[in-house]
Design a protein around this nucleic acid. Structure first.
Lengths: 332, 332
DNA sequence: CTGAAAGCGCTAACAA
DNA sequence: TTGTTAGCGCTTTCAG
């Protein structure tokens, strides 16, 4: 018999019980008498029976599946950030025995809401419309990676302002006054906030803000390189650089090496992300680590509560990043 | 009305037609009269109706979803190879409008076969048992990344022997006779075949095989580093190294720089993968590129034929890799 | 071109 | 503790 066509009826017949008992065996075996349980067990094995997920779901059973929606963009598969989010969420779900349905959407929105109990929406790049559409469908939703203060939705985000502030302040406290900032893509919330934090830190340290020290480099190594060229072609070069991502910071390191600028002697560098890919011949980057794992499992917890209707209050959570001191900032 | 509870019945009532017509609208609108089609269209929009996937599937409609099964292992999210496979498959499926259900399995096999029409099994590390279990379930299956000559299953793989052969031969043809090989994890088919190719190429070039030039480094940078230390502590150091992955090749480059060994003047290096992460301060690695994209869409094509029962013959396809000549092999 | 009605395989009352 | 049975929302004959 084709194993793909074995149904609950076959199992019931084989075991000499009703289909209801087989169903009970599947969902709550402990309420069955031991002997029937064993007979069903045997029949299941013998027939190689596997319940049809779709039938279970349609009949009102739960699917125990969460969706993770991520906007697709060029380079997402090379993005440490996006991958860490996927990793964090899948780990958090594994512990809870919930399946993960990942949906990366490019132009067309082909997310099948009916496949999941709830959704974690990773708003890595700007994507408010997609979020609104989701919310309209009344699916339990938690946003990660972005503060959504103006909507009735829970989120878990990282305090990027604080990250930018701490990084810059760290440089200032170690004596730097010529601190440049390589910004990310300023149309994205996190990049903007890191810049704001940078500005605030300079202000609090009584360092005047110089616009030529602030360069938008869109999280791109190529753009970072260009920004650096420009910055170092003028007379008044910085003694420290805060890059809004480790990728860009790594470009700074490469640039410095080529130009014979000693890091950290002549130039201190601090990045953002704590990206393990960014090792530079044994050089370890001083950086700002985001609690991505914590973000993921906090979001999963909140969504689980929502789905189970245990705690449906809207929660807006902001997690603090942490400075990781390594080799690229002169601590003298 | 709760948008999650709008059913086909509501739409039918709203449009003043039968549910059968709404179903036709969903699946094959062209057979409906224009006027009804428009009325249904309107009702769908007004009620924000979305069919329940599970009901559709259960009722015999197709799901148009393929599964991609990948064994989970430490570092999979940092693995260029695994990510390229995911990327390739998702691109190939996107063109065909088929959904992708990715299943990364760690210890427990929690793949829900009933969610998909067929499966692409990426046997990156050894995982024959899982494959056998899958085959037993009679799900249409295509294996990628591994030759499975002894089972009745189609596969698409890369000719790793040829890759290893060509890489080594390339070095030999450019005058090298002291050619070392940093092997990958030799319990994995591809690593073993690259080594075999290396051996064969040496033989054909009348270069005696020296076992101290062959070091297993498990695709790991750390192990590669150790192997290099050992290799370069002896007297008879190689003039060329073929590394079974770009990651390991990159470690060679770092090692050489530290030791003041000039690449490619004193040491030629060739990698494997064409991994864009492996850039080394403007240095471009000569390497062997695997046709991963082609592998992915070939596999998708085969699986689609299987699922549609168009061509159910078993196909065993081996694709040739290609040498990418760049800066790290001395062409003099 | 359209409607009525019979399932798809399972869960969950309700009864026994 | 177990069986009977009514759906879940949709697709698909089969008539008309």
């Amino acid at each position: 018999m084709n194993p793909r066509k074995v149904t609950i009826i076959d199992v019931a017949r084989e075991a000499g019980v009703s289909i209801a008992s087989v169903s009970r065996f599947l969902n709550n075996p402990s309420i069955l008498r031991k002997s029937s349980r064993e007979r069903i067990q045997e029949a299941v094995k013998k027939l190689n029976y596997r319940p049809l997920i779709h039938a279970q779901r349609l009949a009102g059973g739960k699917l125990d599946t969460f969706g993770l929606i991520i906007p697709g963009y060029e380079g997402i598969f090379y993005s440490f950030y996006a991958l860490e989010i996927i990793r964090g969420v899948s780990l958090a779900l594994e512990r809870k025995n919930i399946d993960l349905h990942i949906n990366i959407f490019w132009d067309k929105d082909n997310f099948k809401a009916s496949l999941v109990d709830g959704v974690i929406f990773a708003d890595i790049i700007n994507n408010r419309n997609q979020l609104l559409r989701l919310l309209r469908q009344k699916i339990p939703t938690v946003v990660i990676n972005r503060k959504v203060e103006d909507l009735d939705v829970s989120f878990v985000a990282v305090d990027n302002f604080k990250g930018g502030y701490e990084a810059t302040n760290f440089l200032a406290k170690h004596g730097h006054r010529k601190i440049a900032h390589l910004c990310g893509d300023l149309s994205v919330q996190c990049a903007k906030e890191r810049l704001d934090g940078y500005r605030e830190a300079l202000k609090n340290n009584n360092i005047p803000i110089k616009e030529q020290y602030i360069k938008a480099a869109g999280f791109s190594r190529v753009l970072a390189r260009e920004a650096l060229k420009e910055m170092f072609s003028s007379s008044n070069t910085p003694t420290a650089i805060f890059a809004a991502s480790d990728e860009m910071a790594q470009e700074v390191l490469g640039f410095a090496r080529e130009k014979g600028i000693d890091v950290p002697q002549d130039l201190s560098v601090i990045g953002f992300d704590d990206n393990p890919h960014c090792v530079h011949d044994g050089f370890s980057l001083t950086t700002v680590r985001q609690p991505l794992g914590k973000m993921a499992y906090t979001a999963v917890d909140i969504l689980k509560d929502l789905v189970d209707e245990k705690n449906t209050s809207i929660r807006k959570i902001i997690l603090a990043p942490e400075i990781i001191i390594r080799d690229t900032v002169n601590l003298a």
